[in-house]
């Protein structure tokens, strides 16, 4: 009898112990700190991809200098080295600073109309490594100030006549270590334009890069200004589109080091600022089709990062 009693006590203690252990284990599981799903590492090597912004924003307190350059059209071939020695280059020099995590503010000066631009870029959502968030979402806004003399704006000049705006929503994904793709939609507005030109333009596009070595990549872009009947203020009597901006299509090579990015590309817009590219990228002479070398030119972009 004693043995049976002792067996029951031992058994119950054993069960209690095992239950208690399970409880401890459950508690341990509950209290185990969640592994943070961190953002993917550098979906793009630079904040700029040819003409477009990427979701890449460096760490906070980083200063970025950007030099963008466009040569002349390539139509003269070898005689002026496909436009490299041709006059009529376009240049932009800009500086961006990451004030807080995921927010970058910038200023730049472009040769087109000596336009100053102030920009802001913010990463709303970042793609994570464990795919908890599958895409990144970034907004970019640019405010341009035309730097020409007052009489270029005609009668009834006001300082706000100089303003132009560009807003863009970018959604993209780093698919793997060598492929990142973005799509974007944008809205462009110019306060004062010459008669026969729209004030507003909506555009869509896509771009991306394919890395083929740790430092090198092929990148591309395609931006399309849309023909939206309701938005257009100007068409001919036959309801046809006149001087509608052409797409900005480009392809190039990118070289990235830790703090530098160098991109060289061929593209179909001499404009550097996005609002000008979406609004004023027209074919200067209609006798040349879009795919002629008259409409394509060589350009390059260099960026340099400094951490503070």
């Amino acid at each position: 009898m004693k043995k049976i009693f002792l067996f029951i006590i031992v058994l119950s203690l054993g069960l209690n112990l095992s239950f208690a252990q399970e409880g401890v284990e459950e508690k341990a599981v509950e209290e185990k700190p969640k592994v943070k799903d961190r953002p993917v590492r550098e979906p793009f090597g630079s904040g700029i991809l040819i003409d477009n912004q990427t979701c890449f924003i460096p760490e906070k307190k980083t200063l970025e200098m950007v030099i963008q350059h466009r040569f002349g059209p390539m139509n003269n071939g070898i005689s002026d080295i496909w436009g490299i020695y041709k006059p009529g280059a376009n240049i932009r020099i800009g500086f961006n600073y990451v004030v807080i995590d995921k927010l970058q503010l910038g200023y730049g000066l472009t040769m087109t109309n000596m336009t100053s631009d102030f920009s802001a870029k913010y990463n709303i959502i970042e793609q994570t490594r464990k795919n908890t968030i599958p895409v990144f979402v970034t907004v970019f806004a640019d405010w341009g100030i035309d730097g020409r003399s007052n009489d270029s704006f005609g009668e009834n000049y006001k300082p706000t006549n100089r303003f132009s705006y560009f807003t863009q929503l970018i959604v993209g994904r780093k698919f793997n270590d060598w492929c990142s793709i973005q799509v974007h939609g944008s809205f462009t507005h110019f306060n004062k334009v010459e008669p026969g030109t729209d004030h507003d333009k909506i555009g869509v596009g896509f771009n991306g890069r394919f890395k083929f070595s740790p430092q090198s990549a092929i990148h591309f872009q395609a931006d399309f200004p849309l023909k939206i009947q309701g938005l257009s203020e100007y068409k001919t009597d036959n309801n046809e589109w006149v001087d509608h901006p052409v797409p900005n299509i480009g392809i190039g090579y990118e070289l990235n080091t830790g703090a530098h990015s160098f991109q060289v590309y061929i593209l179909s817009s001499k404009e550097i600022l996005p609002q000008y590219s979406y609004m004023y990228n027209t074919i200067p002479n209609e006798q040349y089709p879009f795919w002629s070398t008259q409409n394509f030119l060589i350009g390059f972009t260099m960026t340099r990062l400094w951490g503070f």
């Binding site: 005609g154 507005h189 010459e194 203020e233």
Partner: peptide, 9 residues
């Protein structure tokens, strides 16, 4: 600052 004006001389 959004305006809809035309340049007229």
């Amino acid at each position: 600052s959004c305006e809809y004006e035309y340049i007229e001389f």
